[in-house]
């Protein structure tokens, strides 16, 4: 379980002012959860997830991962073994000169024996479907493929939590879809806990639970259905609802008797068919 206990984080501006990028965050993410975090630019999403594996430490409060405190200088390495991270820019996360060497990078760091490393690398490559590219050089891969290598690198470590910080914002639509499919599979088949930051509401709609952040506070914490039902409140936070939900709301306004919080095409089709 990931647990934030009243976490506040200050950073200093150039004028030496203390500004809180997180204030009084309390949250619990259980093992096996499939959650998204949304929020406008500067709402503190990235700052929040960087607290999970001790890349940032809270100014006040505690962050616990499996009851290990991120403040503990020794335990933080055990936390990082369990918490894999994928960042936004695929180019700036790959360290080694070939795909398989990069996946092995984390394993080398935690001192896994060469033989076991080979097995884990094979397994991770298989899951992300990059078996044919194991000897490729990173700069020859597409953005989506690079992100899959990063995911494989985290998986090879046997992580139980995978944090993805806007992993698709620099990808084309095809790569975006592919990453989301992989993430879903990981949650269902490997029961890996997923925490997924995104700017795309259509992506967020596919998660079990959404945290909405505004100015360093969690303002909403609910299922996508209930979150996107509050379109007015979201608009006030410079957030939108998914396109299909917007369509549903317009249809409701024009007099159709369907729910206003439809999240995907299938559901929409189902309700519209009632009118035929």
């Amino acid at each position: 379980m990931i647990e934030f206990k009243n976490v506040t984080h200050f950073y200093n501006t150039e004028q030496n002012e203390k500004i809180a990028s997180l204030s009084g965050i309390n949250l619990k993410i259980h093992k096996g959860d499939f959650v998204a975090i949304i929020g406008a630019n500067g709402s503190g999403k990235s700052t929040l997830v960087k607290h999970i594996n001790g890349l940032l430490l809270p100014s006040k409060g505690e962050v616990l991962v499996e009851n290990l405190n991120t403040r503990d200088m020794e335990e933080v390495w055990n936390i990082r073994k369990q918490v894999g991270m994928v960042f936004q820019n695929p180019d700036n996360q790959l360290i080694a000169t070939t795909v398989e060497d990069d996946i092995a990078f984390g394993l080398e760091n935690i001192g896994i024996k060469a033989k076991e490393m080979g097995e884990r690398v094979d397994w991770a490559l298989n899951i992300v479907g990059l078996n044919g590219l194991r000897n490729s050089e990173p700069h020859l891969l597409s953005g989506g493929q690079k992100q899959r290598v990063v995911i494989a690198g985290a998986l090879a470590m046997n992580t139980s939590y995978l944090i993805l910080d806007e992993p698709t914002s620099m990808l084309d639509p095809k790569g975006r879809k592919n990453i989301l499919e992989i993430v879903k599979d990981l949650n269902k088949k490997e029961s890996i806990t997923i925490v997924y930051i995104t700017q795309f509401m259509s992506e967020a709609a596919q998660f079990d639970k959404i945290f909405v952040l505004d100015k360093g506070r969690i303002v909403l914490e609910d299922s996508p259905k209930k979150v996107f039902d509050k379109a007015e409140q979201l608009l006030g936070l410079s957030l939108e609802v998914p396109q299909i939900t917007r369509l549903a709301r317009e249809l409701v306004k024009s007099g159709l008797d369907i729910p206003g919080n439809i999240l995907n095409e299938d559901e929409m089709v189902k309700y519209l068919c009632l009118y035929i």
């Binding site: 390495w77 991270m85 960042f87 700036n92 360290i95 990078f105 080398e108 760091n109 690398v121 985290a154």
Partner: peptide, 21 residues
Amino acid sequence: DLAIAMEARCYRGGEGRTHYR
């Protein structure tokens, strides 16, 4: 960015590191 990504992947220098190759 790279330094953060390396730290997130448990990199802490050469000590105790094994080699894939």
